[in-house]
Structure formats: structure tokens, C-alpha cells
């Protein structure tokens, strides 16, 4: 007797998890690094500014959460067709 797995990992699931991980890393960088110490390719990098871009970090975290929830939805088993 074959059973459908309760969690199906599809390519899109892995892609969304990867996106979430990347954005969590970006969020952490924004939250712990001052603007002058950010990598130069990061939006918000400014050589003479010592404040943290907390809002950028929160925005990145929001994207990560959405991507994770999206990944979770993609793991649903396919509907049985009648």
C-alpha cells in the first residue's frame, strides 16, 4: 500500500527556503552592522554614518518570513482528483 508523504519537498520549496536563508542573513547583517561597516554593495552603506539600518533589517526579516511561509505551503500533498 503506497501512501502520499505528508510533506512533499518540491523544487519551489527549496528555492523559497534558500531565499528565506539569504534574507535572514541580510537581516542579521543590517541589525548588527553600522551603516559605515556594511558591505559597499548593500543599500544603505554610507562611509560616515555610524547608525544601524534597523528598518532595512526588519524589511529583510519580513521577506524571509513570507518566503518561509510560502515554502511551507508548497509542501502540501497534491489534492486527490475525483
Amino acid at each position: 500500500m503506497s501512501t502520499t508523504p505528508r510533506i512533499q519537498m518540491r523544487p519551489l520549496t527549496w528555492l523559497l527556503i534558500a531565499v528565506a536563508v539569504v534574507f535572514v542573513v541580510i537581516a542579521v547583517v543590517y541589525l548588527v552592522t553600522a551603516a559605515n561597516a556594511l558591505p559597499s554593495f548593500f543599500p544603505g552603506h554610507a562611509a560616515h554614518v555610524t547608525k544601524h539600518h534597523t528598518k532595512h533589517g526588519l524589511a529583510a526579516l519580513a521577506v524571509a518570513v513570507v518566503a518561509l511561509i510560502g515554502a511551507w505551503f508548497t509542501t502540501a500533498p497534491a489534492r486527490a482528483t475525483s
Binding site: 543599500p43 528598518k55 532595512h56 526588519l58 524589511a59 519580513a62 521577506v63 513570507v66
Partner: peptide, 17 residues
């Protein structure tokens, strides 16, 4: 509501100031 909140939420966080 979640989907509709994302564009303005992120833009607001980044550009409101």
C-alpha cells in the same frame, strides 16, 4: 491582506523617512 500589505510595508520601511 497579507499579500496586499507587503508592498507598502516594505516600501514604507525603506523610504518613509
Amino acid at each position: 491582506l497579507v499579500v496586499a500589505t507587503i508592498p507598502a510595508g516594505i516600501t514604507g520601511l525603506l523610504l518613509e523617512h
